[in-house]
Design a protein around this nucleic acid. Structure first.
Ligand SMILES: [Zn+2]
Ligand SMILES: [Zn+2]
Ligand SMILES: [Zn+2]
Ligand SMILES: [Zn+2]
Lengths: 159, 159
DNA sequence: CATGTAATGTTATACTATAACATATAGGAA
DNA sequence: TTCCTATATGTTATAGTATAACATTACATG
Protein backbone atom coordinates (compact mmCIF):
# COMPACT_ATOMS: atom_id res chain seq x y z
CA UNK A 1 0.00 0.00 0.00
CA UNK A 2 1.36 3.39 -0.82
CA UNK A 3 1.86 5.83 2.00
CA UNK A 4 2.13 8.53 -0.60
CA UNK A 5 2.30 8.94 -4.33
CA UNK A 6 5.41 6.86 -4.87
CA UNK A 7 5.59 3.89 -7.24
CA UNK A 8 4.47 0.65 -5.71
CA UNK A 9 3.36 -2.87 -6.58
CA UNK A 10 -0.28 -2.19 -7.13
CA UNK A 11 -1.23 -5.84 -7.59
CA UNK A 12 -0.53 -6.15 -3.89
CA UNK A 13 -3.02 -3.37 -3.17
CA UNK A 14 -5.63 -5.20 -5.19
CA UNK A 15 -4.97 -8.61 -3.68
CA UNK A 16 -4.89 -7.32 -0.13
CA UNK A 17 -8.15 -5.44 -0.52
CA UNK A 18 -10.00 -8.31 -2.18
CA UNK A 19 -8.73 -10.89 0.28
CA UNK A 20 -9.59 -8.65 3.16
CA UNK A 21 -13.12 -8.16 1.84
CA UNK A 22 -13.60 -11.88 1.30
CA UNK A 23 -12.33 -12.75 4.75
CA UNK A 24 -14.36 -10.08 6.44
CA UNK A 25 -17.54 -11.08 4.63
CA UNK A 26 -17.03 -14.72 5.52
CA UNK A 27 -16.43 -13.84 9.16
CA UNK A 28 -19.38 -11.53 9.45
CA UNK A 29 -21.85 -13.46 7.34
CA UNK A 30 -21.97 -10.76 4.68
CA UNK A 31 -22.47 -11.60 1.04
CA UNK A 32 -19.82 -10.39 -1.38
CA UNK A 33 -22.07 -10.86 -4.37
CA UNK A 34 -21.10 -10.67 -8.02
CA UNK A 35 -22.02 -7.01 -8.40
CA UNK A 36 -20.49 -5.95 -5.09
CA UNK A 37 -17.26 -7.75 -5.83
CA UNK A 38 -17.08 -6.35 -9.33
CA UNK A 39 -17.61 -2.79 -8.10
CA UNK A 40 -14.82 -3.25 -5.57
CA UNK A 41 -12.56 -4.56 -8.33
CA UNK A 42 -13.34 -1.54 -10.47
CA UNK A 43 -12.51 0.78 -7.59
CA UNK A 44 -9.21 -1.05 -7.19
CA UNK A 45 -8.07 -0.68 -10.79
CA UNK A 46 -6.21 2.51 -9.94
CA UNK A 47 -5.84 4.86 -7.01
CA UNK A 48 -8.47 7.12 -8.48
CA UNK A 49 -11.99 7.80 -7.38
CA UNK A 50 -14.81 6.72 -9.66
CA UNK A 51 -18.21 8.33 -9.98
CA UNK A 52 -21.23 6.10 -9.50
CA UNK A 53 -22.25 6.58 -13.11
CA UNK A 54 -18.78 5.70 -14.39
CA UNK A 55 -19.04 2.44 -12.54
CA UNK A 56 -22.58 1.94 -13.75
CA UNK A 57 -21.59 2.27 -17.38
CA UNK A 58 -19.00 -0.48 -16.93
CA UNK A 59 -21.47 -2.70 -15.12
CA UNK A 60 -23.91 -2.08 -17.92
CA UNK A 61 -21.41 -3.08 -20.59
CA UNK A 62 -20.79 -6.28 -18.65
CA UNK A 63 -24.46 -7.10 -18.30
CA UNK A 64 -24.45 -6.64 -14.53
CA UNK A 65 -27.08 -3.93 -14.37
CA UNK A 66 -28.08 -0.72 -15.99
CA UNK A 67 -29.99 1.33 -13.42
CA UNK A 68 -28.58 3.65 -10.74
CA UNK A 69 -29.86 1.69 -7.71
CA UNK A 70 -27.68 -1.25 -8.77
CA UNK A 71 -24.50 0.67 -8.32
CA UNK A 72 -25.60 2.77 -5.36
CA UNK A 73 -26.60 -0.35 -3.44
CA UNK A 74 -23.26 -1.96 -4.10
CA UNK A 75 -21.45 1.22 -3.07
CA UNK A 76 -23.55 1.52 0.08
CA UNK A 77 -22.57 -2.02 0.99
CA UNK A 78 -18.88 -1.42 0.36
CA UNK A 79 -18.83 1.86 2.25
CA UNK A 80 -20.92 0.59 5.16
CA UNK A 81 -18.54 -2.30 5.65
CA UNK A 82 -15.36 -0.32 5.27
CA UNK A 83 -14.25 -1.70 1.90
CA UNK A 84 -14.58 1.66 0.18
CA UNK A 85 -14.93 5.33 0.99
CA UNK A 86 -16.86 8.17 -0.52
CA UNK A 87 -14.76 11.17 -1.49
CA UNK A 88 -17.20 13.98 -0.74
CA UNK A 89 -15.28 16.63 -2.60
CA UNK A 90 -15.50 14.62 -5.80
CA UNK A 91 -18.85 12.91 -5.37
CA UNK A 92 -16.92 9.78 -6.12
CA UNK A 93 -15.83 6.53 -4.53
CA UNK A 94 -12.49 4.94 -3.77
CA UNK A 95 -11.48 1.51 -2.49
CA UNK A 96 -10.17 1.49 1.06
CA UNK A 97 -6.40 1.09 1.19
CA UNK A 98 -6.24 0.16 4.85
CA UNK A 99 -9.06 -2.31 5.25
CA UNK A 100 -9.78 -4.09 8.46
CA UNK A 101 -8.68 -1.25 10.70
CA UNK A 102 -10.90 1.33 12.29
CA UNK A 103 -9.65 4.56 10.81
CA UNK A 104 -10.45 8.19 10.08
CA UNK A 105 -9.03 8.31 6.58
CA UNK A 106 -7.23 11.33 5.18
CA UNK A 107 -7.35 11.64 1.42
CA UNK A 108 -4.87 13.55 -0.67
CA UNK A 109 -6.44 14.33 -4.02
CA UNK A 110 -4.32 15.54 -6.92
CA UNK A 111 -6.36 17.97 -8.99
CA UNK A 112 -4.17 17.36 -12.03
CA UNK A 113 -3.73 13.58 -12.32
CA UNK A 114 -6.77 12.76 -10.17
CA UNK A 115 -4.90 10.23 -8.06
CA UNK A 116 -6.29 9.75 -4.59
CA UNK A 117 -4.08 8.56 -1.77
CA UNK A 118 -5.48 7.40 1.53
CA UNK A 119 -3.07 8.19 4.34
CA UNK A 120 -2.79 6.55 7.72
CA UNK A 121 -3.55 8.97 10.51
CA UNK A 122 -3.66 7.92 14.09
CA UNK A 123 -2.25 11.27 15.28
CA UNK A 124 -4.87 13.22 13.37
CA UNK A 125 -7.58 11.10 14.85
CA UNK A 126 -6.32 11.99 18.30
CA UNK A 127 -6.03 15.62 17.36
CA UNK A 128 -9.58 15.89 16.07
CA UNK A 129 -10.70 13.99 19.12
CA UNK A 130 -9.34 16.64 21.41
CA UNK A 131 -10.70 19.48 19.28
CA UNK A 132 -14.14 17.91 19.44
CA UNK A 133 -13.82 17.14 23.12
CA UNK A 134 -13.13 20.80 23.85
CA UNK A 135 -16.47 21.61 22.27
CA UNK A 136 -18.25 18.69 23.93
CA UNK A 137 -18.88 17.21 20.51
CA UNK A 138 -19.33 13.46 19.94
CA UNK A 139 -17.61 12.34 16.75
CA UNK A 140 -19.37 9.77 14.62
CA UNK A 141 -17.79 10.22 11.20
CA UNK A 142 -15.05 12.38 9.74
CA UNK A 143 -14.42 13.75 6.28
CA UNK A 144 -10.82 14.81 5.76
CA UNK A 145 -9.82 15.58 2.22
CA UNK A 146 -6.86 17.57 0.98
CA UNK A 147 -6.86 18.85 -2.56
CA UNK A 148 -3.71 19.95 -4.28
CA UNK A 149 -0.87 18.67 -6.42
CA UNK A 150 1.02 15.42 -6.10
CA UNK A 151 4.84 15.49 -6.46
CA UNK A 152 4.83 14.50 -10.14
CA UNK A 153 2.23 17.08 -11.09
CA UNK A 154 4.09 19.81 -9.21
CA UNK A 155 7.09 19.18 -11.42
CA UNK A 156 4.92 19.09 -14.54
CA UNK A 157 3.32 22.39 -13.53
CA UNK A 158 6.68 24.16 -13.60
CA UNK A 159 7.45 23.14 -17.17
CA UNK B 1 -18.20 33.98 17.57
CA UNK B 2 -18.73 30.61 19.15
CA UNK B 3 -15.80 28.33 19.61
CA UNK B 4 -18.25 25.53 20.17
CA UNK B 5 -21.94 24.97 20.59
CA UNK B 6 -22.40 27.20 23.63
CA UNK B 7 -24.87 30.08 23.79
CA UNK B 8 -23.57 33.32 22.40
CA UNK B 9 -24.64 36.73 21.16
CA UNK B 10 -25.37 35.82 17.59
CA UNK B 11 -26.05 39.40 16.49
CA UNK B 12 -22.32 39.89 16.94
CA UNK B 13 -21.63 37.01 14.58
CA UNK B 14 -23.88 38.61 11.98
CA UNK B 15 -22.47 42.11 12.38
CA UNK B 16 -18.89 40.96 12.32
CA UNK B 17 -19.37 38.89 9.20
CA UNK B 18 -21.26 41.59 7.29
CA UNK B 19 -18.84 44.32 8.29
CA UNK B 20 -15.91 42.16 7.36
CA UNK B 21 -17.40 41.41 3.95
CA UNK B 22 -18.12 45.10 3.32
CA UNK B 23 -14.65 46.16 4.34
CA UNK B 24 -12.96 43.44 2.37
CA UNK B 25 -14.98 44.19 -0.77
CA UNK B 26 -14.22 47.89 -0.49
CA UNK B 27 -10.52 47.19 -0.05
CA UNK B 28 -10.29 44.72 -2.91
CA UNK B 29 -12.61 46.44 -5.36
CA UNK B 30 -15.16 43.64 -5.16
CA UNK B 31 -18.87 44.31 -5.50
CA UNK B 32 -21.06 43.15 -2.66
CA UNK B 33 -24.20 43.39 -4.76
CA UNK B 34 -27.78 43.09 -3.56
CA UNK B 35 -28.06 39.37 -4.27
CA UNK B 36 -24.63 38.53 -2.87
CA UNK B 37 -25.26 40.47 0.29
CA UNK B 38 -28.68 38.96 0.74
CA UNK B 39 -27.33 35.42 0.33
CA UNK B 40 -24.69 36.14 2.94
CA UNK B 41 -27.36 37.46 5.30
CA UNK B 42 -29.41 34.32 4.81
CA UNK B 43 -26.39 32.15 5.58
CA UNK B 44 -25.89 34.18 8.76
CA UNK B 45 -29.40 33.73 10.13
CA UNK B 46 -28.30 30.70 12.10
CA UNK B 47 -25.26 28.49 12.42
CA UNK B 48 -26.77 26.03 10.02
CA UNK B 49 -25.85 25.20 6.47
CA UNK B 50 -28.33 26.03 3.73
CA UNK B 51 -28.75 24.22 0.46
CA UNK B 52 -28.56 26.28 -2.71
CA UNK B 53 -32.19 25.61 -3.50
CA UNK B 54 -33.30 26.62 -0.02
CA UNK B 55 -31.61 29.95 -0.57
CA UNK B 56 -33.05 30.20 -4.04
CA UNK B 57 -36.59 29.78 -2.83
CA UNK B 58 -36.12 32.68 -0.42
CA UNK B 59 -34.55 34.84 -3.10
CA UNK B 60 -37.44 33.97 -5.36
CA UNK B 61 -40.02 35.00 -2.75
CA UNK B 62 -38.18 38.31 -2.42
CA UNK B 63 -38.06 38.95 -6.15
CA UNK B 64 -34.29 38.61 -6.32
CA UNK B 65 -34.15 35.80 -8.83
CA UNK B 66 -35.68 32.45 -9.55
CA UNK B 67 -33.14 30.42 -11.49
CA UNK B 68 -30.29 28.28 -10.11
CA UNK B 69 -27.44 30.28 -11.66
CA UNK B 70 -28.50 33.30 -9.58
CA UNK B 71 -27.78 31.57 -6.32
CA UNK B 72 -24.81 29.53 -7.48
CA UNK B 73 -23.07 32.67 -8.75
CA UNK B 74 -23.62 34.44 -5.47
CA UNK B 75 -22.37 31.40 -3.56
CA UNK B 76 -19.33 31.10 -5.82
CA UNK B 77 -18.50 34.74 -5.08
CA UNK B 78 -18.92 34.31 -1.33
CA UNK B 79 -16.89 31.10 -1.22
CA UNK B 80 -14.15 32.37 -3.54
CA UNK B 81 -13.65 35.41 -1.35
CA UNK B 82 -13.77 33.62 1.95
CA UNK B 83 -17.13 34.91 3.18
CA UNK B 84 -18.71 31.48 3.12
CA UNK B 85 -17.77 27.83 2.91
CA UNK B 86 -19.27 24.83 1.23
CA UNK B 87 -19.98 21.92 3.54
CA UNK B 88 -19.26 19.02 1.21
CA UNK B 89 -20.88 16.39 3.35
CA UNK B 90 -24.18 18.26 3.25
CA UNK B 91 -24.02 19.80 -0.21
CA UNK B 92 -24.80 23.00 1.60
CA UNK B 93 -23.28 26.36 2.42
CA UNK B 94 -22.40 28.16 5.61
CA UNK B 95 -21.22 31.70 6.35
CA UNK B 96 -17.61 31.94 7.46
CA UNK B 97 -17.29 32.55 11.19
CA UNK B 98 -13.67 33.64 11.08
CA UNK B 99 -13.53 35.96 8.09
CA UNK B 100 -10.46 37.84 7.13
CA UNK B 101 -8.04 35.16 8.24
CA UNK B 102 -6.46 32.51 6.11
CA UNK B 103 -7.73 29.30 7.60
CA UNK B 104 -8.32 25.62 7.03
CA UNK B 105 -11.75 25.44 8.63
CA UNK B 106 -12.90 22.47 10.67
CA UNK B 107 -16.64 21.99 10.78
CA UNK B 108 -18.49 20.14 13.48
CA UNK B 109 -21.88 19.14 12.15
CA UNK B 110 -24.60 17.92 14.50
CA UNK B 111 -26.67 15.30 12.73
CA UNK B 112 -29.60 15.90 15.05
CA UNK B 113 -30.05 19.67 15.31
CA UNK B 114 -28.12 20.43 12.11
CA UNK B 115 -26.02 23.14 13.72
CA UNK B 116 -22.65 23.70 12.10
CA UNK B 117 -19.76 25.12 14.08
CA UNK B 118 -16.61 26.34 12.40
CA UNK B 119 -13.63 25.81 14.68
CA UNK B 120 -10.33 27.64 14.69
CA UNK B 121 -7.46 25.32 13.89
CA UNK B 122 -3.96 26.56 13.48
CA UNK B 123 -2.50 23.36 14.98
CA UNK B 124 -4.46 21.17 12.60
CA UNK B 125 -3.27 23.23 9.69
CA UNK B 126 0.28 22.58 10.76
CA UNK B 127 -0.40 18.94 11.28
CA UNK B 128 -1.91 18.43 7.86
CA UNK B 129 0.94 20.43 6.45
CA UNK B 130 3.48 17.98 7.79
CA UNK B 131 1.42 14.96 6.73
CA UNK B 132 1.27 16.33 3.20
CA UNK B 133 4.91 17.30 3.23
CA UNK B 134 5.88 13.74 4.06
CA UNK B 135 4.13 12.66 0.88
CA UNK B 136 5.50 15.57 -1.14
CA UNK B 137 1.98 16.83 -1.62
CA UNK B 138 1.17 20.53 -2.19
CA UNK B 139 -1.97 21.55 -0.33
CA UNK B 140 -4.35 23.91 -2.09
CA UNK B 141 -7.63 23.36 -0.27
CA UNK B 142 -8.78 21.26 2.64
CA UNK B 143 -12.12 19.75 3.55
CA UNK B 144 -12.37 18.83 7.20
CA UNK B 145 -15.80 17.97 8.47
CA UNK B 146 -16.78 16.10 11.60
CA UNK B 147 -20.25 14.66 11.87
CA UNK B 148 -21.73 13.67 15.18
CA UNK B 149 -23.75 15.01 18.07
CA UNK B 150 -23.47 18.38 19.78
CA UNK B 151 -23.60 18.50 23.59
CA UNK B 152 -27.31 19.35 23.76
CA UNK B 153 -28.30 16.58 21.36
CA UNK B 154 -26.19 14.03 23.25
CA UNK B 155 -28.25 14.75 26.33
CA UNK B 156 -31.48 14.57 24.37
CA UNK B 157 -30.41 11.22 22.91
CA UNK B 158 -30.19 9.65 26.34
CA UNK B 159 -33.75 10.56 27.30
C1' DC C 1 -21.35 59.40 -25.52
C1' DA C 2 -18.50 55.30 -26.57
C1' DT C 3 -16.38 51.33 -24.86
C1' DG C 4 -15.29 47.48 -22.15
C1' DT C 5 -16.01 44.72 -18.03
C1' DA C 6 -18.64 42.70 -14.60
C1' DA C 7 -23.08 41.15 -13.15
C1' DT C 8 -27.58 39.38 -14.03
C1' DG C 9 -31.40 37.13 -16.71
C1' DT C 10 -32.94 32.99 -19.10
C1' DT C 11 -33.25 28.49 -21.11
C1' DA C 12 -31.75 24.19 -21.21
C1' DT C 13 -29.37 20.32 -19.64
C1' DA C 14 -26.01 17.45 -17.04
C1' DC C 15 -24.85 15.09 -13.03
C1' DT C 16 -25.83 12.79 -8.51
C1' DA C 17 -28.91 10.15 -5.66
C1' DT C 18 -33.11 7.99 -3.71
C1' DA C 19 -38.17 6.36 -3.29
C1' DA C 20 -41.17 2.84 -4.13
C1' DC C 21 -42.57 -1.38 -5.45
C1' DA C 22 -41.93 -5.92 -7.96
C1' DT C 23 -39.23 -10.08 -8.43
C1' DA C 24 -35.77 -13.38 -7.52
C1' DT C 25 -32.45 -15.89 -4.77
C1' DA C 26 -30.39 -18.20 -0.85
C1' DG C 27 -30.46 -20.36 3.60
C1' DG C 28 -32.85 -22.24 7.53
C1' DA C 29 -37.03 -24.46 9.77
C1' DA C 30 -40.64 -27.71 9.55
C1' DT D 1 -38.47 -31.43 0.22
C1' DT D 2 -41.33 -27.58 0.94
C1' DC D 3 -42.24 -23.51 3.00
C1' DC D 4 -40.84 -19.39 4.97
C1' DT D 5 -38.12 -15.41 5.64
C1' DA D 6 -34.49 -12.34 4.91
C1' DT D 7 -31.54 -10.47 1.62
C1' DA D 8 -30.47 -9.00 -2.82
C1' DT D 9 -31.74 -7.51 -7.42
C1' DG D 10 -34.75 -5.56 -11.18
C1' DT D 11 -37.40 -1.60 -12.74
C1' DT D 12 -39.68 2.79 -13.13
C1' DA D 13 -39.94 7.15 -11.75
C1' DT D 14 -38.46 11.20 -9.58
C1' DA D 15 -35.82 14.21 -6.40
C1' DG D 16 -31.87 16.99 -5.59
C1' DT D 17 -27.52 19.39 -6.99
C1' DA D 18 -24.96 21.99 -10.36
C1' DT D 19 -23.33 24.01 -14.79
C1' DA D 20 -23.20 25.37 -19.94
C1' DA D 21 -24.33 28.69 -23.08
C1' DC D 22 -25.90 32.78 -24.62
C1' DA D 23 -28.62 37.28 -24.17
C1' DT D 24 -29.12 41.45 -21.66
C1' DT D 25 -28.21 44.97 -18.37
C1' DA D 26 -25.55 48.00 -15.27
C1' DC D 27 -21.84 50.57 -14.51
C1' DA D 28 -17.22 52.51 -14.35
C1' DT D 29 -13.89 55.03 -17.20
C1' DG D 30 -12.03 57.64 -20.92
ZN1 LIG E 1 -1.79 0.61 -5.28
ZN1 LIG F 1 -9.83 3.32 4.39
ZN1 LIG G 1 -23.50 33.00 16.15
ZN1 LIG H 1 -14.19 30.27 7.66
Amino acid sequence: MPIGFEQHDHTTCIQTALTSAETCCADEGLQLTKVRRRVLELLLVEHKALGAYDILSTLNSEGLGSQPPIVYRALDFLVANGFAHKIEKLNAYSACCHPGKAHAPVFMICRACKYVVEAQTEPLRNFLGSTAKAAGFLIERTVIEIEGLCPACQKAEVL
